[in-house]
Design a protein around this nucleic acid. Structure first.
Lengths: 114, 114
DNA sequence: CTTATGCGCAACCATGTGGTTGCGCATACC
DNA sequence: GGTATGCGCAACCACATGGTTGCGCATAAG
Protein backbone atom coordinates (compact mmCIF):
# COMPACT_ATOMS: atom_id res chain seq x y z
CA UNK A 1 0.00 0.00 0.00
CA UNK A 2 2.60 2.53 -1.02
CA UNK A 3 0.18 5.40 -0.45
CA UNK A 4 -0.75 7.14 -3.67
CA UNK A 5 -2.65 9.56 -1.42
CA UNK A 6 -3.41 11.93 -4.36
CA UNK A 7 -5.84 14.04 -2.32
CA UNK A 8 -6.33 16.74 -4.93
CA UNK A 9 -7.81 15.71 -8.26
CA UNK A 10 -4.94 16.59 -10.58
CA UNK A 11 -5.53 19.88 -12.37
CA UNK A 12 -5.26 18.62 -15.92
CA UNK A 13 -7.00 21.64 -17.33
CA UNK A 14 -4.38 24.00 -16.00
CA UNK A 15 -1.51 21.88 -17.29
CA UNK A 16 -3.14 21.62 -20.67
CA UNK A 17 -3.90 25.32 -20.83
CA UNK A 18 -0.38 26.27 -19.83
CA UNK A 19 1.18 23.91 -22.35
CA UNK A 20 0.37 26.33 -25.17
CA UNK A 21 2.57 29.38 -25.82
CA UNK A 22 -0.25 31.56 -27.11
CA UNK A 23 -2.34 30.78 -24.08
CA UNK A 24 0.59 31.75 -21.87
CA UNK A 25 0.97 35.00 -23.81
CA UNK A 26 -2.70 35.73 -23.34
CA UNK A 27 -2.55 35.05 -19.65
CA UNK A 28 0.58 37.17 -19.42
CA UNK A 29 -1.08 40.08 -21.19
CA UNK A 30 -4.11 39.73 -18.97
CA UNK A 31 -1.93 39.92 -15.88
CA UNK A 32 0.17 42.80 -17.18
CA UNK A 33 -2.71 44.96 -18.20
CA UNK A 34 -5.13 43.90 -15.55
CA UNK A 35 -7.67 42.54 -18.01
CA UNK A 36 -8.48 42.90 -21.68
CA UNK A 37 -11.04 42.00 -24.35
CA UNK A 38 -10.69 39.31 -26.97
CA UNK A 39 -10.42 42.00 -29.63
CA UNK A 40 -7.62 43.91 -27.94
CA UNK A 41 -5.79 40.68 -27.24
CA UNK A 42 -6.05 39.58 -30.85
CA UNK A 43 -4.57 42.89 -31.95
CA UNK A 44 -1.36 42.04 -30.11
CA UNK A 45 -1.21 38.44 -31.25
CA UNK A 46 -0.60 36.73 -34.59
CA UNK A 47 -4.08 35.19 -34.67
CA UNK A 48 -7.66 36.31 -35.20
CA UNK A 49 -10.09 37.32 -32.52
CA UNK A 50 -11.95 34.04 -32.93
CA UNK A 51 -8.85 32.01 -32.22
CA UNK A 52 -8.25 34.12 -29.13
CA UNK A 53 -11.82 33.48 -28.05
CA UNK A 54 -11.24 29.73 -28.25
CA UNK A 55 -8.08 30.01 -26.20
CA UNK A 56 -9.95 32.09 -23.66
CA UNK A 57 -12.52 29.31 -23.48
CA UNK A 58 -9.79 26.79 -22.68
CA UNK A 59 -8.36 29.09 -20.03
CA UNK A 60 -11.85 29.59 -18.71
CA UNK A 61 -12.48 25.85 -18.39
CA UNK A 62 -9.24 25.66 -16.42
CA UNK A 63 -10.53 28.41 -14.15
CA UNK A 64 -7.62 30.68 -15.01
CA UNK A 65 -9.70 33.38 -16.60
CA UNK A 66 -13.13 34.87 -16.13
CA UNK A 67 -14.99 37.34 -18.32
CA UNK A 68 -17.43 40.04 -17.23
CA UNK A 69 -19.69 41.66 -19.75
CA UNK A 70 -20.03 45.43 -19.60
CA UNK A 71 -22.20 46.80 -22.36
CA UNK A 72 -21.11 45.32 -25.63
CA UNK A 73 -17.63 44.45 -24.39
CA UNK A 74 -16.47 41.42 -22.44
CA UNK A 75 -13.46 42.09 -20.25
CA UNK A 76 -11.42 39.05 -19.26
CA UNK A 77 -9.36 38.90 -16.10
CA UNK A 78 -6.81 36.41 -14.84
CA UNK A 79 -7.53 34.29 -11.79
CA UNK A 80 -4.40 32.75 -10.35
CA UNK A 81 -5.74 30.49 -7.63
CA UNK A 82 -5.90 27.41 -9.90
CA UNK A 83 -2.35 28.11 -10.97
CA UNK A 84 -1.17 28.15 -7.39
CA UNK A 85 -3.03 24.96 -6.60
CA UNK A 86 -1.36 23.37 -9.59
CA UNK A 87 2.04 24.55 -8.48
CA UNK A 88 1.59 22.92 -5.12
CA UNK A 89 0.20 19.77 -6.70
CA UNK A 90 3.13 19.47 -9.08
CA UNK A 91 5.55 20.11 -6.29
CA UNK A 92 4.04 17.40 -4.14
CA UNK A 93 4.06 14.97 -7.05
CA UNK A 94 7.72 15.60 -7.80
CA UNK A 95 8.65 15.22 -4.16
CA UNK A 96 6.70 11.99 -3.77
CA UNK A 97 8.23 10.43 -6.85
CA UNK A 98 11.66 11.57 -5.84
CA UNK A 99 11.32 9.86 -2.48
CA UNK A 100 10.06 6.68 -4.09
CA UNK A 101 12.90 6.62 -6.58
CA UNK A 102 15.45 7.06 -3.81
CA UNK A 103 13.82 4.26 -1.83
CA UNK A 104 14.05 1.91 -4.79
CA UNK A 105 17.66 2.74 -5.47
CA UNK A 106 18.41 2.12 -1.80
CA UNK A 107 16.83 -1.32 -2.00
CA UNK A 108 18.75 -2.16 -5.14
CA UNK A 109 22.05 -1.46 -3.45
CA UNK A 110 21.09 -3.53 -0.43
CA UNK A 111 19.88 -6.65 -2.18
CA UNK A 112 22.69 -6.68 -4.71
CA UNK A 113 25.87 -7.74 -2.83
CA UNK A 114 28.00 -7.14 -5.94
CA UNK B 1 10.30 47.23 -18.97
CA UNK B 2 8.29 45.10 -16.59
CA UNK B 3 10.99 42.43 -16.82
CA UNK B 4 9.65 39.26 -18.36
CA UNK B 5 13.09 37.79 -17.66
CA UNK B 6 11.89 34.27 -18.58
CA UNK B 7 15.39 32.81 -18.40
CA UNK B 8 14.36 29.19 -18.87
CA UNK B 9 12.62 28.24 -22.09
CA UNK B 10 9.27 27.04 -20.73
CA UNK B 11 9.07 23.24 -20.57
CA UNK B 12 6.03 22.76 -22.71
CA UNK B 13 6.79 19.12 -23.33
CA UNK B 14 6.60 18.31 -19.64
CA UNK B 15 3.33 20.17 -19.15
CA UNK B 16 1.82 18.47 -22.15
CA UNK B 17 3.03 15.04 -21.09
CA UNK B 18 1.73 15.49 -17.55
CA UNK B 19 -1.66 16.69 -18.74
CA UNK B 20 -2.66 13.13 -19.64
CA UNK B 21 -3.85 10.71 -16.95
CA UNK B 22 -2.49 7.61 -18.65
CA UNK B 23 0.89 9.21 -19.05
CA UNK B 24 0.86 10.05 -15.35
CA UNK B 25 -0.06 6.46 -14.53
CA UNK B 26 2.80 5.22 -16.67
CA UNK B 27 5.25 7.54 -15.01
CA UNK B 28 3.91 6.54 -11.64
CA UNK B 29 4.34 2.85 -12.40
CA UNK B 30 7.84 3.50 -13.69
CA UNK B 31 8.75 5.25 -10.48
CA UNK B 32 7.13 2.65 -8.23
CA UNK B 33 8.70 -0.35 -9.88
CA UNK B 34 11.96 1.26 -10.85
CA UNK B 35 11.43 0.74 -14.55
CA UNK B 36 9.34 -1.46 -16.81
CA UNK B 37 8.81 -2.50 -20.42
CA UNK B 38 6.04 -1.32 -22.71
CA UNK B 39 4.54 -4.80 -22.60
CA UNK B 40 4.43 -5.04 -18.82
CA UNK B 41 3.02 -1.51 -18.59
CA UNK B 42 0.29 -2.31 -21.10
CA UNK B 43 -0.71 -5.33 -19.03
CA UNK B 44 -1.61 -3.03 -16.15
CA UNK B 45 -3.39 -0.44 -18.28
CA UNK B 46 -6.60 -0.40 -20.29
CA UNK B 47 -4.77 0.14 -23.59
CA UNK B 48 -2.61 -1.85 -25.95
CA UNK B 49 1.15 -2.00 -25.95
CA UNK B 50 1.27 0.21 -29.03
CA UNK B 51 -0.65 2.96 -27.32
CA UNK B 52 1.71 2.71 -24.37
CA UNK B 53 4.64 2.94 -26.76
CA UNK B 54 3.27 6.20 -28.15
CA UNK B 55 2.82 7.61 -24.67
CA UNK B 56 6.35 6.58 -23.83
CA UNK B 57 7.50 8.47 -26.91
CA UNK B 58 5.76 11.61 -25.66
CA UNK B 59 7.31 11.18 -22.24
CA UNK B 60 10.64 10.57 -23.92
CA UNK B 61 10.42 13.79 -25.93
CA UNK B 62 9.75 15.60 -22.66
CA UNK B 63 12.89 13.99 -21.22
CA UNK B 64 10.91 12.31 -18.48
CA UNK B 65 11.67 8.77 -19.56
CA UNK B 66 14.56 6.95 -21.16
CA UNK B 67 14.70 3.41 -22.49
CA UNK B 68 17.67 1.06 -22.51
CA UNK B 69 17.64 -2.03 -24.66
CA UNK B 70 18.83 -5.27 -23.11
CA UNK B 71 18.51 -8.20 -25.44
CA UNK B 72 15.04 -8.17 -26.92
CA UNK B 73 13.55 -6.08 -24.15
CA UNK B 74 13.56 -2.33 -23.74
CA UNK B 75 13.40 -1.23 -20.14
CA UNK B 76 12.13 2.30 -19.54
CA UNK B 77 13.11 4.35 -16.53
CA UNK B 78 11.83 7.65 -15.18
CA UNK B 79 14.05 10.70 -15.15
CA UNK B 80 12.76 13.40 -12.85
CA UNK B 81 15.10 16.30 -13.53
CA UNK B 82 12.82 17.85 -16.18
CA UNK B 83 9.94 17.56 -13.76
CA UNK B 84 11.83 19.43 -11.10
CA UNK B 85 12.88 22.11 -13.55
CA UNK B 86 9.24 22.47 -14.52
CA UNK B 87 8.17 22.74 -10.92
CA UNK B 88 10.58 25.59 -10.33
CA UNK B 89 9.56 27.24 -13.59
CA UNK B 90 5.86 27.07 -12.74
CA UNK B 91 6.54 28.35 -9.28
CA UNK B 92 8.48 31.33 -10.59
CA UNK B 93 5.76 32.08 -13.13
CA UNK B 94 3.01 32.04 -10.52
CA UNK B 95 5.04 34.25 -8.19
CA UNK B 96 5.82 36.74 -10.93
CA UNK B 97 2.23 37.02 -12.05
CA UNK B 98 1.05 37.29 -8.51
CA UNK B 99 3.37 40.21 -7.88
CA UNK B 100 2.28 41.93 -11.08
CA UNK B 101 -1.38 41.49 -10.25
CA UNK B 102 -0.87 42.96 -6.81
CA UNK B 103 1.00 45.89 -8.31
CA UNK B 104 -1.83 46.60 -10.70
CA UNK B 105 -4.44 46.42 -8.00
CA UNK B 106 -2.36 48.80 -5.93
CA UNK B 107 -2.28 51.29 -8.77
CA UNK B 108 -6.01 51.03 -9.31
CA UNK B 109 -6.67 51.96 -5.70
CA UNK B 110 -4.30 54.90 -5.89
CA UNK B 111 -5.58 56.51 -9.08
CA UNK B 112 -9.23 55.97 -8.23
CA UNK B 113 -10.07 58.42 -5.39
CA UNK B 114 -13.61 57.08 -5.31
C1' DC C 1 16.05 -26.03 -35.65
C1' DT C 2 11.58 -24.59 -34.17
C1' DT C 3 8.65 -21.99 -31.33
C1' DA C 4 7.45 -18.22 -28.53
C1' DT C 5 8.01 -13.48 -27.05
C1' DG C 6 8.98 -8.61 -27.33
C1' DC C 7 9.43 -4.68 -30.35
C1' DG C 8 9.06 -1.59 -34.17
C1' DC C 9 6.80 0.02 -38.23
C1' DA C 10 2.86 1.17 -40.98
C1' DA C 11 -1.91 1.71 -42.10
C1' DC C 12 -6.04 3.09 -40.65
C1' DC C 13 -9.82 5.44 -37.99
C1' DA C 14 -12.27 8.75 -34.94
C1' DT C 15 -11.93 12.75 -32.46
C1' DG C 16 -9.94 16.98 -30.87
C1' DT C 17 -7.46 21.23 -31.75
C1' DG C 18 -6.06 25.46 -33.71
C1' DG C 19 -6.94 28.15 -37.16
C1' DT C 20 -9.71 30.52 -40.68
C1' DT C 21 -14.00 33.03 -42.90
C1' DG C 22 -18.68 34.64 -42.97
C1' DC C 23 -22.79 36.18 -40.84
C1' DG C 24 -26.06 38.10 -37.57
C1' DC C 25 -27.11 40.60 -33.50
C1' DA C 26 -26.69 43.94 -29.92
C1' DT C 27 -24.69 47.91 -28.12
C1' DA C 28 -22.50 52.30 -28.62
C1' DC C 29 -21.53 56.53 -31.41
C1' DC C 30 -22.99 60.67 -34.38
C1' DG D 1 -32.55 57.49 -37.24
C1' DG D 2 -28.22 55.33 -39.42
C1' DT D 3 -23.38 53.69 -38.98
C1' DA D 4 -19.67 51.51 -36.72
C1' DT D 5 -17.84 48.27 -33.41
C1' DG D 6 -17.54 44.16 -30.52
C1' DC D 7 -19.14 39.56 -29.84
C1' DG D 8 -21.10 34.96 -30.56
C1' DC D 9 -22.26 31.18 -33.48
C1' DA D 10 -21.49 28.05 -37.22
C1' DA D 11 -19.17 26.02 -41.05
C1' DC D 12 -15.15 24.57 -42.71
C1' DC D 13 -10.23 23.06 -43.08
C1' DA D 14 -5.61 20.92 -41.96
C1' DC D 15 -3.26 18.52 -38.84
C1' DA D 16 -2.17 16.27 -34.38
C1' DT D 17 -3.57 12.71 -30.98
C1' DG D 18 -4.99 8.52 -29.05
C1' DG D 19 -6.39 4.48 -30.16
C1' DT D 20 -6.65 0.16 -32.87
C1' DT D 21 -4.97 -3.98 -35.98
C1' DG D 22 -1.69 -6.48 -38.68
C1' DC D 23 2.83 -7.74 -40.00
C1' DG D 24 7.74 -8.63 -39.87
C1' DC D 25 12.01 -9.14 -37.51
C1' DA D 26 15.19 -10.25 -33.93
C1' DT D 27 16.23 -12.39 -29.71
C1' DA D 28 15.35 -15.87 -26.23
C1' DA D 29 13.54 -20.55 -24.91
C1' DG D 30 12.43 -25.59 -26.08
Amino acid sequence: MTGTHDGEPAPEGVLLALADPIRRQILNALVSEGGATSTSLAAALPVTRQAVAKHLAVLGRAGLVRGHRTGREVRYEAHLQPLERTTRWLDALAAQWDRRLDAIKGLAEQEEPS
